[in-house]
Amino acid sequence: MTQATETNINTCCGSDESCETATRDQRVRFTPAVDIIEAADEFRLIADVPGVRAEDVDIAYKNGRLTLRAAVRERPEAPNRRLLRREYAVGDFHRSFTVGEGIDTQKIDATVADGVLTVRLPKARAAKLHRVPVRSAE
């Protein structure tokens, strides 16, 4: 089973336009860092999305492709403040993955906490079943 699941979720692209049409004006778009973990009954995809709230996340599954999009709200610029140093830019997050067989795509579920998005992809029942060894009849 581990053999088969190895290719169950593959990162496919970051800001590749072929993924889907996605144009959010001229804002910078980032590829979030992700961990992909396999547990006994699910895969977990964990992405760093600082500044993102649950209502700003859009997760779509279509034709074997899971697309994560997270919009980061503009942080209000306080009046009269002057930039001294900028080491990072703020922008939206976008990344997609190919999802193989063995995932119950109806039950994909996601949560956001502390700027971290966790997507749970439960294994399909068939994939969880233990294979029954077949012996030849005597």
Binding site: V34, I36, A39, D48
Partner: peptide, 8 residues
Amino acid sequence: QTFYRRER
């Protein structure tokens, strides 16, 4: 748990 990708 098995990590298939670890970037964080």
